[in-house]
Amino acid sequence: MNITLRVWRQKGPDDKGRMVTYKVEDVSPDMSFLEMLDVLNEKLTLEGEEPVAFDHDCREGICGACGVVIDGEAHGPETTTTCQLHMRSFSDGDTITVEPWRAKAFPVIKDLVVDRGSFDRIVQAGGYISAPTGTAPDAHAMPVPKADADRAFDAATCIGCGACVAACPNASGMLFTAAKVTHLGMLPQGQPEREARVVQMVNQHDEEDFGGCTNIGECAAVCPKGIPLDTISQLNRDLLGALTSSRAE
């Protein structure tokens, strides 16, 4: 296959950036999208042009490092991570537009690489259970109903890639935040800090300049891990509960 790529090139955080067109020839349909970019980068290096920077690591869809917007869709036309997208999803002669995640909370570092530190800071604000090492009771001390454990797991599969933010018309990080609130809120171990957690995480989310959620649902539609949209409803419920709670502080 022969592919024409329109790629966002930006030298650094302060550069304005622009789209540049490249041709990639002899693309195999069995290549992953990132391997196709590897081929481009090998070619560019030999031609003396700096290769395109993009984030990636495990290349098996679990670390959450990779992610670009392909033809207007976060992670491209399949519901999976960019590293698990294969060129057989495209056709010979296609022109493909590749852009970085675009959000104020995810500033571009270079080309297709963005800084997602805002996600870490949301977790720092309360996305954990305080359990100092060594203090834990026996694992079977507290049974967890299977349905709750399963729902906690569904939410916990979030890989923090940021596709939800990239796809959201408001650039909201609410699905990411809600996934963590739901994961920990479904477990008995997560109850003592449940109210404080949701309050602090939502505040941090807003401080990071993410947009607000308007329940459009693009986030869940592009999520490579299928984080359910209803986690956001659960977060809302938890927050409203925390704001009206009479629990002493």
């Binding site: 329109r6 966002w8 950036g17 789209m19 917007v69 033809d71 207007g72 537009t97 852009e99 675009r102 959000a103 104020k104 909370a105 408001n170 650039a171 909201s172 300049d209 993410f210 947009g211």
Partner: peptide, 8 residues
């Protein structure tokens, strides 16, 4: 929250 828009 999205100062730079997408091209596509």
């Amino acid at each position: 929250a999205r100062p730079v828009r997408y091209q596509v």
